[in-house]
Amino acid sequence: MKQENKPNKANWDFKQILLVGSKLFVIAAISATLLSLIYAVTEPAKQENILAEEKETLSVLIASGDIGPKEAVNSMQFKQVISRWIVREAGNPVAVVLQLAGNGYGGPLSLMAGYKLDGELINAKLMVNTETPGLGKKAETDAYMNKFRGKGGTGSGYPLPVNKEMLAEQQQGSSAGSTTVFQVKRPANFAEWLFGKPKGNVDTVTGATITFTAVSGALEAGSDYVKQTWGGAE
C-alpha cells in the first residue's frame, strides 16, 4: 500500500493538477451552461402547464359565476391557505376557491377547493403531491373527495370529517351511503366479480392515513378561513 502511494504522490506535480482540474472544470462548465439553456426552455412550459391546470380545475370546481383573479393570502392564523380566487355572481361574491397546502405521506401536497361563503365545501381536487407511487394515490381520484363534498358549512348537517371515526359515523348516518369506504366489499355475484370496478379502499390496506389527515386538515382550515372571512358578512 505505502509503496504504491509514494510514487503516485510524486506524480501529482502542479502542472498536472492544473491540467486535470481545468479539464474537470471545462466539463462541469459545459454541462452547467447546457442545463441552464434547457432550463430556460422547460421552466416557462412548466409554469404554463401549472397555470393551465389551475384554470381547468377552477372551471371544474365552480360551475357558474365569474372567477376573479388569483390573490395571494398571507394569513398568520391559516398558514395552509396559500391563495384564493373569489367567485362573483352579478357583482356579489358567492363562493371562493382556495389553494391549500397540506403535508402528505411523502411530502407536501397542494389542493384546490371551492367553498360556499358559509364554509361548505363544494368540491376539491388534489393538485401536486409527491406521494409514494401507489400509496395514497387514491386521493387524486374524483371519488375520494366525495366524503368531503357538501360538508363543513354552518347550514349543512355534517362537519368536515377530520378523522376516520368521524367518517365512519357519517357513513353509517347517511342511509344514502353509496359506497362503503372502509371495508373491502366482496362482490355480490359472479357478474360483479367479473366486471365490477375496484372496490374497497387502498387507504385501509396501505395505512396511508396521512393522506387523509393531510387532505382533511387542509380542507378544514380552508373552511374555517372562509367562515372567518365571510361568515359575518352574510
Partner: peptide
Amino acid sequence: TIVDMVMGAWLPVLSRNLGI
C-alpha cells in the same frame, strides 16, 4: 437533470408519479 426538466415541463403527471 435534462430528463427531470423535460418530464416536469411536458409530462407533469408522470413526473409527479415518479417523484424523487
